[in-house]
Structures are given as structure tokens and as C-alpha cells.
Design a protein around this nucleic acid. Structure first.
Ligand SMILES: [Mn+2]
Ligand SMILES: [Mn+2]
Ligand SMILES: [Zn+2]
Ligand SMILES: [Zn+2]
Lengths: 143, 143
DNA sequence: AAATTAAATGCATCATAGTTGCATTTGTGA
DNA sequence: TCACAAATGCAACTATGATGCATTTAATTT
């Protein structure tokens, strides 16, 4: 983790009027170090020194502010990923494909893959979409 | 619940080599009486006389056999719906839209709405898809 | 119809995810 | 450096889900 990256996170916390604390910066560092979403159990393991409750509160406030978004995998486990952009308080735009590998269980945010258009039956008014795919990821396909 | 409907469920259990028991028939009756998916907590409330563990085991075996499928709502709560067709042991085809109302929290299986085509990045091999939408359902829109 | 047996249920117990209240600590702005 | 709101830690609690084992029951066989 570079100095510049760390500054970016401090700036991000400033933007949302959140105090720049050790646990919060660590959560952001852990999540940004990977190219997949991080599960709550994994995160809890990585944050040994931090209280479980504190972690839950950090994840909740980050999600509310639009810093991270939450994805449930095939087992219903909560996974978190840093939002790329355009997300604000109580208004997420994570309308991209979420790929859940059935071998390694990783969740990929495929941000570049925007959703194809489709129409809803009468009466339904949608304000958010997510497309899920399950299968084998590149790493697991190779073996 | 008609005699014919009940016979249909008994036949369904026969098909999958499952014993026709009270709790199992009751689960099927409860789920088929609604036009939306049923959450595990709701189901637990409806099945007062049946042990919690028995309910979990019924839901698991029904899902394995392809009788029902599991949908996690926006809160990560498990919801279950009877499969329409084409589902078999360990191979579900619930590749339709799941609409989660943010007001009443109901989950609708919009079976008729099949997914538009799209392509995955190289290396990803998908074998299952689900499209989620959240917003306001017809009932909740009216008010 | 009675006996047999594998399958299903119930009960006790445990594990993990997530929440709430409250005391203590700490970051930040004055 | 002081004051205070914000954040953390700790204890306790709820809910979801799983596992082991004894008991019951549906379905088959005699
Ligand atoms: Mn995502
Ligand atoms: Mn469905
Ligand atoms: Zn994988
Ligand atoms: Zn609704």
C-alpha cells in the first residue's frame, strides 16, 4: 500500500465527514488490495486486532455513504467491494455483473459489463438492478 | 387447497422418492398459496407445530431435488419459491427476474421474463444467471 | 394384517452473523 | 490544549442455520 493510496482513502473519509481512524483505513486497505469482493468472515479474520462490532459498524456506515457496496454470494454470505464511482448516500449504482465462482467462491465485480435492456411487467417500478452469474472464474478454469 | 392440488404435491414427492409426510405437504401448501416467494422466517411462523430443524431439512432436500429454489432478498434473508419446471437434482433453471419490493419486501419470481443475452469477459465460464431488480411492486405502487 | 426397516422427525446443543446499550477512548475543530 | 461529538470496545442478546442422536413413522415385505 503506497502513501498515495493511503492519502486517497483519507481523502475519501474526509469527503464523507468520517473520522480518519486506524480501523477504517485498514478496512479500505484490505478491500482495495484484492481484485475481488471481500467476505465479512474474511474481513473479520484480516482485522484481528479490531473488535467485531466495530467492523460491522464500519461496513454499515461505508455502505450508507456509498463508499462500498454489499453483495450476497450463493451461500447468502455478505461480501463487500469498494464502489467505483457515482455512488452516494443511500443511492448505489452497482448495476454491473456480479460473478460468483462456484469453485473458489470469489465474487467478482465486473464493472465494465453493463446490463442489457429489458422491460418489466406492468405495475413494477424498478430503481435498481443487479445481474448475477455463477460458474468458473479464470483462475479456476485454468486448472 | 383442493384435493387435486394436494394430490399434485403427493405425486411430486413420489417422483423424487420422498416420503409423503405432513410437514412436507404443509410446506408445499403454504408456498403454493402465495404468488410471491416465502421467507424462511415467515415459513417458520406458518409451521408452528413443526420443529425448526425439520423445516430447514425439508427446505434443503426440496432445493437439492429441484422442487423449490432459494432467493436471497436485499437483506440477505432466504426466500423460497416452488420451481416451475425444468429443475432437477443439483441443476436449477431459475434464470428469470427476481423482483424485490423495497416497501413490502416481497420477492416476485417473474418467470416469463427471460434474460437478455450478453457476453462475459474472457476466462469466465458461466452456468447460471439471475437478474435482480429492486423497486416498488404493483400493490405498493397503487397506494 | 403384522412385522420390518430406512427415512423422517424432534430435541438438545452448538456455531456464526449481526445488533444494541453503555462506558471509555480518540479525532478534530475551536 | 481543551471540549465534545464521534468512534471504539466490551458484554449481552437475537436470529439463522447445522449436527448428533434417540424416537417415530411411512412404505415395503412377509
Ligand atoms: Mn459490485
Ligand atoms: Mn425464482
Ligand atoms: Zn474461482
Ligand atoms: Zn410491495
Amino acid at each position: 500500500m503506497t502513501e498515495i493510496t493511503n492519502n486517497r482513502f483519507e481523502h475519501l473519509l474526509d469527503l464523507h465527514h468520517l473520522k480518519k481512524t486506524g480501523p477504517r483505513l485498514k478496512v479500505l486497505a484490505m478491500m482495495s488490495a484484492k481484485n475481488t469482493a471481500t467476505s465479512q468472515p474474511d474481513l473479520e479474520g484480516l482485522m484481528e486486532d479490531v473488535d467485531r462490532v466495530t467492523l460491522y459498524r464500519i461496513l454499515n456506515v461505508f455502505e450508507e455513504k456509498g463508499i462500498i457496496h454489499k453483495i450476497f454470494d450463493l451461500n447468502g454470505t455478505a461480501n463487500y467491494a469498494i464502489c467505483t464511482s457515482n455512488c452516494q448516500e443511500h443511492l448505489h449504482h452497482d448495476e454491473h455483473l456480479h460473478f460468483n465462482c462456484t469453485v473458489c467462491n470469489k465474487v467478482y465485480c465486473l464493472n465494465d459489463l453493463s446490463l442489457p435492456a429489458f422491460n418489466l411487467p406492468p405495475g413494477f417500478k424498478a430503481d435498481g438492478f443487479t445481474l448475477y452469474a455463477s460458474g468458473t472464474c479464470p483462475q479456476c478454469s485454468k486448472k
